[in-house]
Simulated assay, not measured.
Amino acid sequence: MLKSLLATLCVASISLLVAAEPSAFGAGNLDSPNPYGLTSSEQNVLKNKHALKKVVLKSNNQANEVDSIRERIDGLQSIVESLSRKSQYNKRSLGLLEEKATKDLLNADEYEKRLGQSVELNSQLSEKNAQAIAKNLLLAQELSKLIDTINTTYVTKIEFNELVNSVNEFKSLVAKEFKSKTKLKTSSLDKMTNGEVADQAEAFYNKQYYTKGIEYYSHLITKNYKPANSHFMIGQMKFKRKNYSEAISYYKKSTSLYSKASYMPELLLHTAISMEKTNDKKNAKVFYNAILVKYPNSTEAKRAKENLLAL
C-alpha cells in the first residue's frame, strides 16, 4: 500500500512538471541539472521536486527495510516454529524422563528399604548366632572344667587305690562273713550263674533287703560281672542307709568304670547330696552344676537346681 501511494505521488509530480511552461533559452527548465531563471512558483515546484525525490528515495529505502524486516520476521517465525516444535518434543521427552526418574526413585526407595530390612535381619541373626556361640562356648568351658575336676579331684589315683583297699577290706569282711555262714549258702551263689545272681540282687534291692543286695552285688564284683552297675547299686544302698562316705566311694568307682551309663544323672545327684551331707559343699556345687550342664532336661537337674539355691 505504501509503494502504491509513493508511485501515485511521483506520477502527479511529474505531470505538474511537464505542464509548466519553460522560459526561453532553457530558462525555467526544471529538468535541467542546474535550472535558472526560475520564477517563484518554479522555485517552489523545484523545491518540492527535490523534497519529493528525497521522500521517494526515503520511502524506497524504508520499503526495502520493511521487506528485509519481513524476510527477517519470516525467518524468525520459522525459527520460532522450529523452536516451538523442539520445545514440545523436549517437553514430552522431559515428561518421560521425569516419569522414568520417579519410577527409578520409587524402585531405589524400595530397594533401599529392602536392603535395610535385609541388613537388620542379618544383624539380628548375627547377634543370635553370636549369643548361641557364646552360650555353647560357656557350656563347653563349664563342661571342660567339670571334666578336669572329675579327672583331678573326683577319681584320683590315690582315691582309686583307697577305693581298691576299701573293696579289698570289704571283700575280706565278706569272706569272713561267708565263712561264718553255712556251706550251703556259699555254694548256692557259686552254683548260680552271674545273670541269676544279678536278678536276685536286683530283687533284694527292690524289696529293700539291702544286706542281701550288697552281698549279691559284691559277689558279682568278684566275678567282674557288670562291675560298674554293681558298684552303683551298692552305692545306692549305702546312700539309702545314709552311709554317705561309703556311697561316694562306690559312686566314684562306678564312674571310673563306665561314665556313660543311663543312671549317671542319678549317680551325680546322689554324689552331690552325699558330699553336701558330709559338709563338702564346694564339691557338691560342682556336681550340681555338672548335672545342669550335662543333663539339663532330666528330673535330677530340677532337684540339683533346688539344692543349689538352698546352699
Rank of each mutant, 00 (worst) to 15 (best):
F239T: 04
P227E: 08
E71K: 12
P265A: 01
L6V: 13
S259W: 12
I248Y: 02
L269W: 01
G95L: 11
E177V: 07
I14H: 11
K179Q: 15
Y288A: 01
T152L: 09
T186R: 15
Y36C: 09
Y225E: 07
F204K: 08
S187F: 05
P296W: 02
P35D: 03
V164F: 02
L5M: 11
N107I: 02
N107Q: 06
Y216T: 04
K226H: 05
A134F: 03
S245V: 13
N229L: 15
A203P: 00
A101C: 04
K207L: 08
E127S: 14
Q88S: 12
T278W: 05
K302T: 11
T222Q: 10
L2T: 13
E112H: 07
Q124F: 03
E177R: 12
N122P: 00
I73N: 08
L138P: 03
I234G: 03
H50W: 14
S82A: 15
Y258T: 11
K113D: 04
K252G: 12
N165R: 07
E306C: 01
E196W: 01
A27Q: 13
L46P: 05
Y205V: 01
K47Q: 14
I214C: 00
G95S: 11
V197A: 00
S245Y: 07
Q117R: 08
S172Y: 02
I214M: 06
V293K: 09
S172L: 08
P227I: 02
K86I: 06
V197N: 02
L17T: 09
N34L: 12
Y258I: 06
N129V: 10
A175C: 05
A175P: 01
M233A: 09
